[in-house]
Amino acid sequence: KKSYVLIKVKNPKTKETHTIVVPEENLEEVLKALASQPNVKVVDIERFP
C-alpha cells in the first residue's frame, strides 16, 4: 500500500497556492526539484492516512 503526501506550494510573486499530491517514496526528489524553483515556496506538507 502506497502512502501519499500532500505538498502545498505558494508562488510569492502571484500569491497563488497549489497543492501537489506525490507518493511518499518520491517526496525527497520532488522537494529537491521544488527547492530549485526560484518562485516556489513550500508552505505545508501533510501525510495521507
Rank of each mutant, 00 (worst) to 15 (best):
K1W: 04
K1T: 08
K1A: 10
K1F: 06
K2F: 06
K2G: 14
K2C: 12
S3K: 08
S3W: 15
S3P: 06
S3Y: 14
Y4N: 04
Y4R: 04
V5Q: 01
V5W: 15
L6H: 15
I7E: 00
K8G: 03
K8H: 15
K8E: 05
V9F: 13
K10I: 15
K10V: 15
K10L: 15
N11T: 04
N11I: 07
N11A: 02
N11G: 04
P12E: 15
P12I: 15
P12T: 14
K13W: 12
K13D: 09
T14V: 02
T14C: 07
T14H: 03
T14Y: 04
K15F: 09
K15C: 12
K15W: 06
E16Y: 07
E16W: 08
E16R: 12
E16V: 12
E16N: 06
E16P: 01
E16K: 14
T17A: 04
T17K: 05
T17Y: 12
T17L: 10
H18F: 15
H18L: 11
H18Y: 15
H18M: 12
T19G: 04
I20F: 11
I20H: 02
I20P: 00
I20A: 01
I20V: 04
I20Q: 02
V21Q: 05
V21G: 02
V21Y: 09
V22H: 01
V22G: 00
P23L: 15
P23T: 11
P23S: 11
P23M: 13
E24N: 04
E25S: 07
E25N: 05
N26S: 10
L27T: 02
L27P: 00
E28R: 07
E28P: 06
E29V: 08
E29C: 10
E29L: 10
V30T: 07
V30H: 02
V30A: 06
V30W: 10
L31H: 00
L31E: 01
K32T: 07
K32W: 06
A33H: 12
A33F: 14
L34A: 01
L34I: 08
L34K: 00
L34M: 04
A35S: 09
A35V: 05
S36R: 12
S36G: 11
S36P: 02
Q37W: 11
P38H: 10
P38D: 10
N39F: 05
N39D: 12
N39T: 05
V40F: 12
V40T: 10
V40S: 06
K41V: 15
V42E: 02
V42D: 01
V43G: 02
V43Q: 03
I45M: 06
I45L: 04
I45Q: 02
E46F: 09
E46G: 08
E46D: 07
R47Y: 14
R47S: 07
R47F: 14
R47K: 08
F48Q: 06
F48E: 04
F48Y: 12
F48M: 11
P49A: 06
P49H: 11
P49D: 14
